[in-house]
Design a protein around this nucleic acid. Structure first.
Lengths: 204, 204, 204, 204
DNA sequence: GCTTAATCGAGACGGTACGTCCGGTCTTCTG
DNA sequence: CAGAAGACCGGACGTACCGTCTCGATTAAGC
């Protein structure tokens, strides 16, 4: 069984002086990603990351002062800059949103997300980072809802942010309870929007 | 100087034969609960629980093979058998529901819940236990929604289980993102139900 | 991998009333012997013996109150009642003695002996049992030496017990230092007796 | 009530970089020695040594992978570099040898020796270390015997190494059977050499 | 025949020590 | 002076036995 330290083919990185070495950073993030993919979150230990990345533990702690910080960095590094597109009608748009995130959460990078939520329950740093991320995504969703509202798709006094929050809550709930692979995004969007959407042509 | 072996000041619990000793079980759950209350969740280590309960570690692992299993047992032992009451109108009922669960989740016992959800993300057993618990609560909620539907409070084709799921998702979302202490349950219930509730007296 | 508890083919032994069950005793000694042969002394735990013998731990402790006691019983049960024979001349007799014991110490039963000596260093009970055994064997050897002395084979003022002790010490030394398989018994006997044996025909 | 985390009253030892810290090694050996002196050999557990030395258990296991290894190190650290002196005649010299070793084996450090022999019966590493030690001591003894032989004290064809082995075997035998405190070294030396020593003035 | 007493397998129990693992801090040495 | 390397202390992990105990079934001997 080859050990993690058998990866000595490439020459070890040297210091590049009194500056942060981007090679080292990349090696660390790559190593961390690989470890999570191979062994799950339990395999993501500072020790193992340092060894696989051929980096010193002090170097790790210098930039990512805790395991949680590394986790968040990892997620940020691997998530795309996806902006959800408006497909014309809100149910279709939200179905597209669910479809996209459920898909992403099933990729290696996306599989980190529930773990980050989990970690956030007992780690302040991660909780903060998660909160930021959520706000960002929420703004994105709220914009989509508002646009539909402007088009007259929704009941008159809809609070677009509350609805966006609800849409996101539904996605997270399905994630946390392991149902993202078995739920139909279109049905889910339909159910969540049922009460809010006016019948076609009924706009004031 | 007390010797290293001056144990057994108070009489220790004895075996009751080749059967599980309920005294021991109680002592362990009590010790675990105390530890969580005193030192938070980081203080809930198998080691500490065993020491405080004056129980052997092997005994702990025999009945609760993991920290997660202990967590779930703890939660089950301390949660009441609360059944949410129908307050006549759905918004009020759901406001009461949110009010109750947000309150409970801020008690020492309730604070275990987000940790259980977190644990479930990487622990099959806990995930299963959580799933069972969720189904139970969902049925409870669904019944409340159905009753309101029968009263004609909701739009005609409401899927009561989907709505119940949504209501619960909203609660969980607020829990996972640390907003249960700052959110008004009535406002939350109002927002979540906005689209589904018919205006008073508008039932067919 | 079959566990020790797969041996449920035969019906378990029952009590035969208020008397010691010889079947049980035999099963325990057999199980103990097998465990030592299969896994070495480290495998001889009270727990494992009880399990393999399908006996209760209390039964074990009733008759053999310690691991050391079991070890000694085991050795006594398996050693033969060998009496070393006088082959006419002392060097030959002692060569025969070395040959026999070195052979025996290489059988499964004999391999227990160094372990008993080892155990005796930190276990009073075993030390006592070992002492008794040594005295027994020493008397045997002393008799052989005395007979040779009577035949005039030895220097006049030989202390036969001291010489017997020396002969035995040499055997034990070879055992403890792992040389019984590589030493020629005849050469050993010759060396140990070199000083004491008179040349042939030189007897007074 | 002192918190569970009020550690570090006295300053702990720090790392000295990626090299073995001699302070730590010394602290561990000292702690081990003290434990043996205070509580006997049963008190020499890795756990207790680590705790008393304020060392991590991992550090212990890194340098001394087993209790046996620690035992050997302890013995080597505490035995002096004694060279047995030639007192002019072999019986006197050997009497001195027995006297010295029996004395040493009754000191705290010396009491480790039978345990090392015991450990060697089931631990390869210890067996090797013991073998080396025995060879060293045997060479020492053989030299003494050879000198006596050169002086014409011994029968002509004496195998000095075989005799030295015998002398040592006798010492070990007395050690293993708990007789070092009750045996007269001079008598023992006399008995062991009886056959080999020529009467005074009888050398060829 | 009925009671009594001892013995049986089973295994739970409180403990102790094991040997492993990781967290987070530190120091040295290499470029 | 950044960085690789890795030693260090602390402490939780999960496992393995120890020796004690209680249970309920079983059976011989004493009444």
């Amino acid at each position: 069984m080859p050990s993690d330290t058998d990866r000595c083919a490439q020459p070890q990185r040297r210091s590049i002086g009194a500056r942060r070495n981007p090679e080292t950073e990349a090696a660390i993030l790559t190593a961390a990603q690989e470890l999570v993919e191979e062994k799950g979150l339990r395999g993501l230990t500072m020790e193992a990351v340092a060894k696989r990345a051929r980096a010193g533990k002090a170097t790790l702690y210098k930039w990512w002062p805790s395991r949680g910080a590394l986790l968040v960095a990892l997620y940020h590094a691997s998530k795309g800059e996806h902006r959800h597109t408006d497909l014309g009608s809100l149910p279709e748009t939200i179905a597209g949103f669910y479809s996209y995130v459920f898909g992403f959460w099933q990729t290696p990078a996306g599989r980190l997300f529930p773990l980050i939520i989990a970690e956030a329950q007992s780690n302040e740093d991660v909780a903060d980072a998660l909160q930021d991320y959520r706000q960002e995504r929420l703004a994105d969703l709220t914009a989509l809802v508002s646009r539909a509202q402007a088009r007259g798709e929704l009941v008159a006094d809809t609070d677009s942010e509350a609805l966006a929050d609800l849409i996101m809550a539904n996605a997270w709930m399905h994630l946390m309870t392991g149902r993202i692979a078995v739920t139909d995004p279109a049905k889910l969007a339909h159910d969540v929007l049922r009460g809010w959407c006016l019948p076609d042509g009924s706009s004031a």
